[in-house]
Each structure stands twice: as C-alpha cells, then as structure tokens.
Design a protein around this nucleic acid. Structure first.
Length: 551
RNA sequence: UGGGGCGUCGCCAAGUGGUUAAGGCACCGGGUUUUGAUCCCGGCAUCGGAGGUUCGAAUCCUCCCGCCCCAGCCA
C-alpha cells in the first residue's frame, strides 16, 4: 500500500510488549456493539482498529453483540450490523458471539460474589440510590441493605430471576466502596429487574446484567486479551478490573481506551441518528446523507475508502474533531482509481451541428478509465444533434480563454472523446431563453489535433441527443450547516441543511449507463462520482446518487 | 468542585532529553493533461502559559490556564 512506515500507536506498542514478555501467547480482540441501532463511521474506526490489530499480530477478533439490555435491542440491528461488518471487509472467528449466551454463567458468577460477601441485594429505589451515591464532591453512604446475610441475598436474587419481584424495587449490587472518589466504584448495580422479552433469550430471564458486570466477564470467557474501547469508559476500568480480579475467570483481559472519531458537520450518536430516522428528516438509516455504514454504502462510498480513512486516523487519547475533507479525500482517492468514466449532462442544451450529415450516426470509442486499460472501453453514439450542459456555454465573447474554458459563440471547444466544434448561432424561444445552439464540427478531429489556427478553449462533456438514456440525479450536501451540530443552544435538528438533497430530473446520460448496476461506481466526467440508487431506481427510471463532486 | 484523561501547524497527528520539529488533510503558487479531475514540483509550526533542571527540553520537575469524561436500575 504505502511505502512510508506508519508509526505504531500506543495499543500496538502495548500488544508488542505483552507478546515479547510472554504475557499473552496470541492476540484476541473483539468488536462489541449493542444491537440497538445501525453502525456508523465512528464504529468503522473501532472495527478497523480491532480487526486490524488481530490481523497485524496474527490473532483473532470476535464480533460480539453486547445485548444486555433488551429494551432497545432488536434482531433487525443484529442482522444489519453483521452485513455492515462484512461489507467493510472483515470476518470474525467462528459464529458471532452474544452476551446473552453467557447469561447463565454470569448468573452463577453473581452468586459467587454474594457467597464471598462481595455483593448484596439492595432494596433502595432509583431515587434513594441516587441520594446514597453522593455526588462528585461528596462521598456516598452505605445502603442499609449492605450487610444483608448471604443466604437472604441468594434467595432474593433467585426471586428476582423468576419474576417474583417487581421492577425497580430490588437490584443486585457489588459491595465495593461508597467512599470511593470514583463514582463507578460506589456499589454499582450488577443486575436489575426487567420483565421484558429479550430478542434472543425470550422470557427466560426477568433480570439482566449491567454493562459493567457483563463486559469484562464476556471478554474473559472469550479469551480476549486486549479489550479496546473508547475514552468514556476509562472511569469504568477500575470496576472492570475489580470484577476480573474477584471472579474465578478463565482468563484475565485488560481494557485500553482510545479516542472516538468525531467528524465535523456530522452527528454520530445512535440516539441522534435514530431521531433523524424516526422524525423522517432522512429516508431511513441508509439515507445517503447519513454517516451510517449503510448510508455510506448506498451513497456510493467504497469500503476501501472507509478503511483507508480509518487507517489514516490516529489511535490516541486525544478527542479531536476530524475535518470531513479528510474523509472526502479518501473517498475521491479510491473512486478516482476505481470508478469507470462516463458522461452525463445535468442541464441539457441542444447543439445542432449544421455541417454534420443529417441522419448520420457514428460510434466513437472512449476509454473506460484514463489510465487503466483493464476496464472496458465505451461506445459513444455521435450524430448531428448533441447535448452539452447549459453551464458550458456562454454568449459572452469577452470571457478570457483562461477564465472560461468552455464554449463561446464563434470559438472552438473539444467534445471529450469526440470532435472539436464551434458555436455559430443562438436560438431563443419566445421568452428569450436560449433553447438551442447552431454550431459546426471540425472533421477529422477525433483523437487528432485540429488544423493550425484552431485552438479549442477546453474540453467539455456531451451526450448524443438522439441516442442517450434519461436519468434523475440526487445531489447531496452536508446534512448540517454547522460544523458542530450539537454545540451551542438548541437542538442539532435546528441545524439541518435544507439544501442537503437536491434532485435534478431528466438528465441525459450516455447510452451505456442504461446498463448501470447497483454497486458499480462511475465518474461522470467533470461532474463527480455517482452510483445507481438501489431504492429509487427502476426499469423505467434510472436514479443516480452523487457520492461526491470532483475537486 | 472529587476522580480520571487530554493539550505539537487552520484540521488530524508523529515525536519516549541532542531531528533542519515526520506525514496526511486544507490552503497558496507553478508544471503536465482531450476531465478547470488525476498527476508532478514548491510554499506553509518552535511545541497551552510561566518558571526551573540540563552543555542541550516539545520531551524531565513545579505552578498556572484550557478542554473532555464520570453522579442511568444505558452502553
């Protein structure tokens, strides 16, 4: 890929040291999403990191669903996440794993802690628990149930489990330290009652383990050596270690935190993305304006571009905001290399070449890519009537050649892959609008320089007026007008860009685009990168999404 | 405010006492070009602040300033 050596990040350094010192034999990582929403670009960074680490060190990476809270979880998300991780190009060891597969084991570990006098059933309600917890500056105080006999807690936990206890009236808590300066250590909840069906375990359970009581143990069960998560979990690490140190686990995983990805002009929080979907500000989770993996895919962004972008990001403990331009750079970089070239006129203006034989049509051949001969050449029908874009014509003959490299009355321009032509006359309708240009072509200029004295101003794209396909183009802009949509007063919704979608109808595309397929990227020369939209396209109507414009 | 974490070019970031302080993005010049694209050349920081240690500090020490995270029976 790159001949410049990429510096190693702090996690790679830790792993190397662990390997060298013999603390671990082989590396095991995991990507642990909760199936309560769709994956987004921020997750992509974590996916590339975790799977990448495993690849680099010859280890494995698990895909594990952290489904400890049935409230917002659903199998729909499980399936979507599996599809997205695959699309990104990664594969996991064995079947996907689920926290819910370990509910039984977790339960007996909870009993173990009670036996050891390190956990107890607490009957404080949510509000009381908050009061007892203390604040950032004041220590908490012990729950009156803290010294409850072991047997009683054991029995109560069983009652909670079978559904004999009302929600919100009891919890299982770890007995740690209500005086701890780290609030997470003030007797955190291990189990809470939720009489709710789980998308995988059905109504087997009436209690569900909390993130803190589950995560490290899940890691230990799977033999995860390096449990990589984002910065906001740093304060949970002492708790993670408390559980791994106080339980008879099959292995001892360690947690490391890195800074999550933030992109300007973008929101990446499942809650906010869900709101955009639920309130119909976008066309679903896979709306091409969404920063979701499925949205990027539908937009035409390649998985290679996402991977390259993620690999370009530093894995560090700083929480910066990456410029969207950096992502766009990698999108263009990949697309420039891989996208097939084609021509499409967005705002058609007809040109009749008066010296071209009426009824004649020839087939010109154009390269599929300027510097790749492995992509098939295109056949472009050429005739007396063609379309160019309105913006590529001007009547203003005073425009300098340097400033306007397009068609001007009385001057020449090169039609890309075809002839050099000249504009001779403008035809207007009754409203004084330009409707057609009468021009002429210079014979023998296909692939050849024009005769002495004829200097085309530039090269413009075109399409046959009689032999082309119609299509609609969906042009996307940033979803938000503010670089930091969630900053400041008000809701991020207030900063939605009303111009984020512009639909251009009845564009004229070169004939071959009639065979465009979903998943194939194109560069409409001089316009941008486009791909067929799987949702809006049909046999009668071609719809292309603009992935991104050219620079 | 208690605890945890972080401050190097407009943005991301390498740097682990001796470097002319990498690189990418963005931006600005110039060249090539049948895409005003790509490509190619060139330009673009003294390291949050103040002291100190040292022959020598972005790197070590002290104090100060700023930003982020934690007070869900969310993850």
């Amino acid at each position: 890929m790159t001949d410049i050596e990429k510096p190693t990040n702090f996690i790679q350094q830790v792993i190397s040291a662990d390997l060298d010192a013999g603390r671990v034999d082989s590396v095991v990582t995991r990507f642990p999403p909760e199936p309560n929403g769709y994956l987004h670009i921020g997750h992509a960074k974590s996916i590339c990191l975790n799977f990448g680490l495993a690849q680099q060190f010859g280890g494995v990476c698990n895909l594990r669903f952290d489904d400890t809270n049935p409230e917002k979880e659903d199998d729909e998300y499980v399936q979507a996440i599996i599809e997205d991780v695959r699309w990104l190009g990664f594969d996991w060891a064995g079947e996907p794993k689920f926290a819910s597969d370990y509910f039984g084991q977790l339960y007996s570990w909870a009993q173990h802690l009670i036996h050891e006098g390190k956990a107890y059933i607490c009957e404080l309600n949510a509000e009381q628990m908050r009061e007892y917890r203390g604040t950032l500056t004041e220590v908490g105080k012990n729950s009156p149930y803290r010294e409850r006999p072991v047997e009683e807690s054991l029995e109560l936990l069983e009652q909670m489990k079978v559904g004999a206890v009302d929600e919100g009236t009891m919890t299982l808590r770890a007995k740690i330290d209500m005086q701890s300066p780290n609030i997470n250590m003030r007797d955190p909840v291990m189990y809470r009652i939720k009489k709710m069906a789980h998308h995988r375990t059905g109504d087997t359970w009436n209690i569900y383990p909390s993130y803190d009581f589950a995560h490290g143990q899940e890691d230990a069960i799977e033999g995860v050596t390096h449990s990589v998560c984002t910065l906001e979990f740093a304060a949970n690490r002492p708790l993670y270690e408390w559980f791994t140190n106080n339980l008879p686990l099959p292995s001892t995983p360690h947690q490391y935190e890195f800074g999550r990805l933030n992109l300007n002009y973008t929101v990446t929080s499942k809650r906010k993305l869900k709101q955009l979907v639920d309130e119909n500000h976008v066309d679903g989770w896979d709306d091409p304006r969404m920063p979701t993996i499925s949205g990027l895919r539908r937009r035409g962004v390649t998985s290679a571009a996402v991977r390259e972008f993620c690999d370009s990001l530093a894995v560090a403990k700083t929480d910066g905001i990456v410029d969207l331009a950096q992502f766009e750079h990698f999108i263009r970089d990949d697309l420039n290399e891989t996208a097939r070239r084609a021509m499409c006129v967005l705002n058609p203006l007809k040109i009749t070449l008066s010296n071209y034989v009426k009824g004649k049509e020839e087939l010109l051949s154009a390269a599929g890519h300027p510097n790749r001969d492995d992509l098939p050449a295109r056949q472009l029908p050429f005739g007396r009537e063609i379309y160019i874009d309105h913006s590529d014509f001007s009547e203003d003959t005073s425009l300098s050649r340097k400033k306007f490299k397009r068609l001007v009355i009385g001057d020449y321009v090169r039609l890309r892959g075809a002839y050099v032509i000249r504009a001779d006359q403008v035809i207007r309708d009754s409203h004084d609008q330009i409707v057609e240009i009468i021009g002429s072509y210079v014979p023998d200029t296909v692939g050849e320089n024009p005769p002495e004295g004829i200097r085309p101003r530039g090269v413009i794209h075109w399409v046959s007026a009689t032999n082309s396909v119609d299509c609609d183009l969906y042009l996307y802009e940033n979803l938000f007008t503010e670089a930091a949509p969630d900053a400041g007063e008000g809701s991020f919704i207030d900063h939605l860009n009303p111009q984020s979608l512009k639909i251009v109808k009845n564009c004229k595309a070169e004939l071959g685009l009639g065979d465009a397929v979903v998943g194939q990227q194109y560069q409409f020369e001089r316009e941008g990168y486009y791909c067929l939209d799987g949702k809006h396209s049909s046999a009668e109507k071609l719809v292309f999404n603009r992935t991104i414009n050219l620079r």
